[in-house]
């Protein structure tokens, strides 16, 4: 399901959505919905918050959210919230700040944010904040650019960025993710990877600090990860391409205003046109 979301959104950023058959795509997405209201990663799999968000994102992209029973899906999502404000990925209780993002974002798409305890969700995200201004997967977990994206975006949807995030500290930590290659890594002293061109960069954008990294150097790094014969983008130059890195590479380029690409929203990870059509609200910070 997430693979379909990455591919479909990439095509929208490229301005070629017609390359996928909308009716077929939507029918497949709906075939993955379970009686609980949640969506599975694929047919014959179990429902999970990760794929519920991906499914709703695809439906949003194709203006088909009216196909779901919003109250039913919202009840499934809100039912996964724990007393401490966290969200489990499914009934088996794995806790991760990725699921906080999936839950708040899904509820925002369904216009049912009131179904969850948003202040408790914010408190939990605050518990996941670290000494470097970043966020981890659970309380105590090390900062990671992927979790920084989910936590910053979740707080943005909750309207609580300004009360939880130290934007100067976190913005500095993210700026230090840019390595001499021009690419971004996800944690200190780790290798750069194209996927962080979205995760780290989107958070910087939401914090109003996109200028704190070198855009031309990052652009050159992402473009250098293209396979010029097969198409697609890989994690690092000369590696095999895949749809995951292709989407994150394009999304990063789009945030940087690369010519020929449709603009993407840093919080909702959908084209700005879609976010505007749906009138989705999120808090953004500026650099005072």
């Amino acid at each position: 399901m997430s693979g379909v979301y990455w591919g479909a959104t990439a095509l929208h950023i490229l301005g070629q959505p017609e390359r996928l058959d909308k009716a077929q795509l939507i029918a497949w997405v709906m075939s993955c919905q379970k009686p609980s209201g949640g969506f599975a990663g694929s047919e014959k799999h179990d429902a999970h918050l990760l794929y519920t968000l991906s499914a709703l994102q695809i439906l949003a992209l194709y203006d088909s959210l009216d196909l779901v029973d919003a109250s039913q899906v919202a009840a499934y999502v809100a039912g996964l919230q724990r007393g401490d404000g966290s969200f489990a990925g499914d009934e088996w209780g794995e806790i991760d700040t990725r699921f906080s993002y999936c839950a708040l974002y899904s509820l925002a798409l369904l216009r049912r944010l009131d179904a969850a305890n948003v202040p408790a969700a914010v408190d939990f995200l605050r518990q996941c904040r670290n000494f470097d201004g970043g966020f981890g997967a659970q309380p105590g977990g090390e900062s990671h650019a992927g979790q920084v994206f989910t936590c910053v975006a979740a707080l943005s949807i909750a309207g609580a960025l300004d009360e939880v995030v130290d934007a100067d500290l976190l913005g500095w930590w993210i700026s230090e993710r840019q390595t001499p290659s021009g690419g971004l890594n996800g944690r200190p002293e780790k290798l750069q990877d194209v996927c962080y061109s979205w995760w780290a960069l989107s958070a910087l954008s939401t914090l109003g600090r996109l200028a704190w990294i070198d855009a031309p150097a990052l652009t050159a790094f992402i473009l250098g990860c293209q396979d010029l014969e097969l198409g697609g983008i890989s994690d690092r130059p000369d590696d095999a391409v895949d749809v995951f890195h292709t989407f994150f590479g394009l999304a990063g380029l789009s945030l940087l205003g690369h010519p020929g690409l449709a603009p993407i929203d840093p919080v909702f990870a959908l084209p700005v046109t879609t976010v505007t059509r749906l009138n989705l609200a999120a808090q953004r910070l500026s650099c005072a």
Binding site: D168, G182, R209, W212, I213, D214
Partner: peptide
Amino acid sequence: DPYRAGYYRHACSV
């Protein structure tokens, strides 16, 4: 450290 020049300009203005 030109990659982070934007941050340094901000810190300087603060």
